[in-house]
Amino acid sequence: MSSEEFPIPISPSITLHTLLSAPSQSSDRPALLLLHFWGGSNRIYQPSISLLQARYPIIAPSLRGWGTSSAPADATAYRITDYAADIVALLLHLQMEHPTLLANGIVIAGHSMGGKLAQVLLSYKEVAPLVRGLVLIAPAPAGRFALPDDMREQQIHAYDSIESASFVVENVLLGKAESVSKAAKKELAEGMVAGSPGARAAWPEYGMAEDYERAVVESVEQYQRGRGQLKVLVIVGELDRVEEPGNVESRVAVALRNTGADVKMDRMTGVGHLVPLEAPETMASAITAFVESF
C-alpha cells in the first residue's frame, strides 16, 4: 500500500497538499492525522508512513506555507488557529469525499509545533467527536513560551539560507548529526528555506507566544465528560535541545494528566528533536502499541 499526495482545496485561497493512504483491507482502526513541525512538511513522516500505512489510514497534510501547500502573503496568517481552521476544513472535505478514511475516527499525531496544534484541535467541535487519542511528538506546550529577544531574532532568520538551515539541522534539531543521511539533511534544509516568509517567521515571532493552555484544559475536560478518558502518548527524544524532556513532562504530560487524561510518556534513547526522521521504526512501534491498546 503506497501513499499518494493530493492538492486539496479547503478554501478559495488555500490548498493543502496532503498525503492520503488506506490499508488494502478494511478494519476498525482509526486514521492517523500527522501534523508536522515548524520548518518541515508532510515529507518528514514518509519513513514512518511506510511502516504504518498497512494497518492505518493516513492523512498527512503540509500546513499552509510549507511544502507545496498554499502560502498566504499576509505575515499574520500563520497563527495556530489559522492552521487549525485549515485542518478542520480538510477533515470536513475528507468526510464528504473520502468518508471511509474517517469512519473509525482519528488519532492526531503532532510533532513540535504540530503538537501544539494537535492539542488545540481538540477544542473544535468538528474535530473532538472524531478523536480517539493524541500522539504528541516532542510537542510544544499549549501555553505561552517566550524566547529572549536575541534568540527570538536568531530563530526568525534561522531558515533564511541553506547554510543557516543546515546549521540548525545539524547542531540544534538532530540529537546526533550522523543519525540521518546527508541526503535527508539536505532535503530538510531545502524544505525549510522553501517555506514562505510568513510561515518561516511566524512561529518564533508570535506562534510560540500564543496561549491556548486554558482552552486545551477545558476541551479535554469537556471531551472526557462526553467521551471518556482521553488517551495521550507523549514521545520525547532523550537528546532534544528544542523541547527538552523535562519541560515536555512538566508543561505537557503533567498538565494533561492534571485534567484527568491517561498520559503515557515514551523517552527515546539517543534521539533529538527530529524523532520522525531519527527513529521512525521506534516511533511507528510506539504509535502502533498505543493505538492497539484502545
Rank of each mutant, 00 (worst) to 15 (best):
G228K: 06
T76S: 15
P61H: 11
T68Y: 15
D149A: 15
A89Y: 12
G65N: 09
P30F: 05
A184I: 13
V248N: 00
V169Q: 03
R251Q: 14
I59M: 10
L91K: 10
P57M: 10
L102R: 10
Q154F: 12
L32R: 10
Q155V: 10
G143T: 02
E244N: 05
E243N: 14
T68L: 12
P61M: 08
M265Q: 15
G39W: 05
E170V: 00
S123C: 05
G110V: 02
I108Y: 02
R241G: 03
M151D: 13
D266R: 13
G246Q: 11
K116A: 04
S69M: 06
A118H: 04
S123T: 06
V193R: 11
G195Y: 01
H98E: 15
T15Q: 11
V172H: 00
G270M: 03
S285R: 13
T288W: 02
V168W: 09
I137L: 05
E218A: 12
R225P: 05
R132W: 05
N42D: 11
A183Q: 12
V135H: 02
G228Y: 02
G246W: 08
M1H: 12
P23D: 10
A71Y: 07
L51Y: 05
Q154L: 14
R152S: 01
V252A: 03
D74A: 12
Q25N: 15
M283Q: 14
M265F: 00
N42C: 12
L130Y: 07
I87S: 07
A128T: 13
G198Y: 08
V180T: 13
E163L: 09
Y83T: 09
P47G: 01
S41D: 14
Y124W: 08
I106Q: 08
M1G: 14
H17K: 15
L121P: 04
E126F: 11
E213A: 15
A75W: 02
A183M: 06
R144G: 09
S293Y: 01
